[in-house]
Design a binder for these strands. Structure first.
Lengths: 319, 319
DNA sequence: AATTGACATGAAACCCATTTCATAACGTAA
DNA sequence: TTACGTTATGAAATGGGTTTCATGTCAATT
């Protein structure tokens, strides 16, 4: 492989001059510029970008931490991130974690080692304090509503959203409402649970833990939800389902079992994933690509900022 | 930021010794090893990985080129790749191209600049010859059945598969068969078209170009397909649909319009995406995660190899 | 004629870890 | 006693760029 030295020798100039040509710096005579360009052409020379990274202390690489991306929620956020990254000439390094702490640590490690300039954590299992310890090595952006002023964040206020969705169902006459969620840990899940508890207190409804169904992530989990419901003595009449993909699974499972939606069971999905429109599922639209865009911009921004993403209920046929 | 020199000074040894400790090389006395480890602890020292990359000429980064990843086909291949990458301690750099040539070139550029050790191209728009020009800079792995012995490839023989699927429908009595595809360009699409043409010649059936429906990628495109079919004087009685997600969209669209499946329209989907099982769609299963795994292993392998992935028809309710 | 500033150029320092090579001490086999 | 292998250590070269600094030329101002 030819390096800058070879090019300089061939063009009969110093490496400095070659570097100037390479980076469009001024103060190079036209004759030498041409000689350098010619030498670059002849040798098919290309910078070793690692040398540039070393001296600049910057790689134009942004890390993205997420548990899995074969899910519309994360793949749409990721799409928002990458679309923006392309515009700003950054590349994305993917950390698929399955919520395994050691993988999240690996990502933090790469920030510490300067292999990535910043880190976007879409969802995490690791303790916030550990993440905070790595802030000294570069910006870390989070996707949740935390009070720390040390992180930039882009988030949905899931507490308020859940409250509103529950109130909406209450107004429609539902008194037995459950919800399906991906996992019970994590800030967003906690906010939702809090809203759910408070809703039951406010309306003096009995709080039933069995109405909270965990591990609802993929399409096929909808089937499991309905199986669970059919074993209940007193099943809920409405469900909040934190992914439309699961909601769609529920709808299809109900069709098979002749459970009528919304009469026997009302459904509110989340995210307004493409499948929701297709299957006429009432949903809470979260502009995920916009979230991704904002996350990326915060990652490359020096300033620390917080942005709440506003969601809206789209009424369709499942309530 | 502390560097190896600072650590060496603090520990009272040379940088060589620190490097030896860091990399578990032999010939370091226990006393000095302890001193070094202590200094590392005190300073919270971490290698600048870019310096390592520079001297090693290797980054443990693999590039993955794909048009979009919010699609089960690509997200499952990608998942197979990342799962394997984690095991081998590599990281993935994502190039989402939307089939834009300049973005594919960017990925090739990064290979040339040594920012990535190898490149996996899941699907491409760029001419093969341009890609071939970059082989000198590192391994490039393709996901298509090309005859060049210069690339490693993992592929499905779409020609044979299409033939078999068409024969299957023919046996079931179908004489008017169409197909839905993501795009008409690309090796895989060409192979399929060839099989489709030959099928029609073999059975002396009229070849109707309007039975080939392009741009079928997402769930919602199923709706468009059915709209198109309803405008036809003589619509096909069966469709091969190269993604189950689109097939699912077609099924739902048919439900709305009271088109009976498989009586009015038979469907064979592709990939056996999760939705296919849920919706009881007859499909051709492609082990996408396994493909991803193999692609990755080829990317880090010195040897050039080719592997055909074997698919199988899963009979369900749409034929 | 003297000063100033714009343009041009290259040597050398710098970023930071790895690795080769030279050197030395010590123990063991011939 | 000599020769050789093993262990231990660090100086210096290496990977390949960018940037600072010193120096020089030439034209425009004072």
């Amino acid at each position: 492989m030819t390096n800058i030295k070879d090019v300089a020798k061939m063009a009969g100039v110093s490496v400095t001059t070659v570097s100037r040509v390479l980076n469009n710096h001024p103060y190079v005579s036209e004759a030498k510029r041409k000689a350098v360009i010619h030498a670059i052409r002849m040798t098919n020379y290309q910078k070793n970008i690692n040398a540039v990274h070393l001296i600049k202390g910057k790689t134009n690489l942004i890390g993205v931490v997420l548990p899995y991306f074969d899910h519309p929620y994360f793949s749409l956020v990721l799409k928002g991130i990458t679309n923006q990254a392309i515009k700003k000439n950054y590349k994305i390094v993917l950390f698929q974690t399955d919520y395994r702490e050691e993988r999240e640590i690996e990502a933090l490690q790469m920030l510490k080692q300067k292999q990535i300039d910043a880190l976007i954590i879409c969802s995490r299992a690791t303790d916030l304090s550990i993440i905070e310890d790595h802030l000294q090595f570069g910006p870390i952006v989070l996707c949740e509503d935390i009070k720390s002023r040390k992180f930039s964040t882009t988030f949905v206020n899931h507490y308020t959203v859940f409250h509103k969705a529950l109130a909406f169902l209450h107004e429609k006459g539902h008194r037995k409402i459950g919800y399906c969620i991906g996992r019970t840990s994590g800030t967003n899940s906690h906010m939702r649970e809090l809203a759910y508890r408070e809703f039951h207190e406010k309306y003096h409804l009995p709080y039933r833990p069995e109405y909270i169904i965990d591990q609802c992530i993929y399409f096929g989990d909808g089937e499991k939800v309905i199986e669970k419901l059919t074993t209940m003595m007193d099943p809920p009449t409405a469900l909040l389902v934190t992914s439309d993909q699961v909601a769609a699974g529920i709808v299809i499972s109900c069709q098979k079992r002749k459970i009528s939606i919304p009469d026997d069971l009302a459904i509110i999905g989340f995210n307004n994933e493409p499948i929701a429109e297709m299957m006429n599922i009432t949903t809470i639209e979260i502009p995920l690509m916009e979230m991704g865009k904002n996350l990326f911009l915060q990652a490359i921004d020096e300033e620390i900022s917080s942005k709440e993403i506003i969601v809206k209920l789209i009424e369709r046929g499942t309530v």
